[in-house]
Amino acid sequence: MDHNEDVIHPMLPAKLRTSLAEHIARVDHPRELVVDVMFAIQDQFGFLSDEAVEEVAQLLNMSPLEVEELATFYTFIYREPVGKYVIHVCDSVVCWMDGYESIQDHLRSKLGIEMGETTSDGLFTLLPVCCIGYCDRSPAILINKEVYGPLTPEKLDEILENLRAQG
């Protein structure tokens, strides 16, 4: 069935659209690329807007719902604007045994935001994540997909200061 008879949203830069379309044309089952396409668009805009979800659906001949099902399932797809630095705090078993809660509390008080929020200067977003496989460095966090750990409040302060300095 053709899900997408609507008008094409003109949000994607022509170059990105062409490269995605070419990539999609090369595979037998286009929908296997849905996560890659979502990431490519998120890399461009920082997050995946409603228009972007619809665009992905159109590119892959899926319904917007099917894209949304995946977009909202995966932690690293952001359906809202996020800060320059996205901090994912691991809350799974090993990090929990090593005290991730104090790390999380420290981040919340230091940044003055709750989990899921972004600082008013647009620098930091705080999000939970389930096990990221760095149990040997627990408690661990990811900042823009780069891992930090094992962490202490002091180390965190240092990391945040460095990032602030970079602006």
Partner: peptide, 10 residues
């Protein structure tokens, strides 16, 4: 076989 209702979030 329709695709406008499903499950979102986690």
């Amino acid at each position: 076989g329709y695709h406008d209702l499903g499950v979102m979030q986690i």
